[in-house]
């Protein structure tokens, strides 16, 4: 009875102009969106920019959300398009800044050692993803990090499932040959 309101309810309230509903919606998804953006851009500053762009786009399109699909799916469809748009505007930063992974940025770190390990793993993941072409990186992100099916990704991106499979298989073969991944696992 007193559980947190559903996404649909928050969307309806936000459309009526209730700022706190929109705030709750942002706080509910900002973590996922921010980490998505981190993996897709490879650095914190661009991730912040991308996240803000995504939420602005979500807000602008909020009235068109009919509730026919999960809000999170709809949100990540927008995030995917915003990411593609982001790539068009800015070259991907290949060189990751050593100091970017600020210590307070990591979650779930109980010890300094675990903190360092997590930091290093995230960095390796971003380095590995950075070596993939943008289209393949997006498919890997949606398939493995967002746990979407080919059909869902196809619906979101407007690309056929066969094309997505082709992109994914190409990405998997490249990842297999990456030495950074061995550090992660």
């Amino acid at each position: 009875m007193f559980g947190s309101p559903s996404d649909d309810a928050l969307v309806r309230k936000a459309l009526k102009g209730q700022a706190d509903a929109w705030d709750k919606l942002i706080r509910r998804y900002e973590g996922r969106v921010y980490n998505f953006a981190m993996r897709m851009t490879g650095n914190r500053d661009d991730a912040m920019d991308l996240m803000q762009n995504i939420f602005l786009a979500v807000y602008r399109g909020l009235a068109s959300f009919r509730g026919e699909s999960e809000f999170s799916s709809w949100l990540f469809a927008i995030a995917s398009f915003r990411t593609t748009d982001f790539y068009r505007r800015r070259r991907f930063t290949e060189d990751l800044d050593e100091g970017e992974m600020a210590e307070e940025g990591l979650l779930h770190t109980q010890s300094p050692f675990g903190h360092v390990v997590s930091k290093q793993r995230n960095k390796c993941v971003m380095q590995a993803l950075a070596q993939l072409p943008e289209e393949q990186r997006l498919v890997v992100e949606l398939k493995f990090f967002q746990d979407l099916t080919f059909d869902e990704i196809s619906e979101q991106l407007g690309v056929s499932a066969n094309t997505l499979k082709s992109r994914l298989y190409g990405a998997l073969k490249k990842i297999k040959a990456m030495p950074e991944v061995m550090h992660v696992v």
Partner: peptide, 16 residues
Amino acid sequence: VLTEQMAMAWTDEAVP
């Protein structure tokens, strides 16, 4: 398998 492990190795960052 490697990509799965890579995804599992990711530790979410807190949003600044």
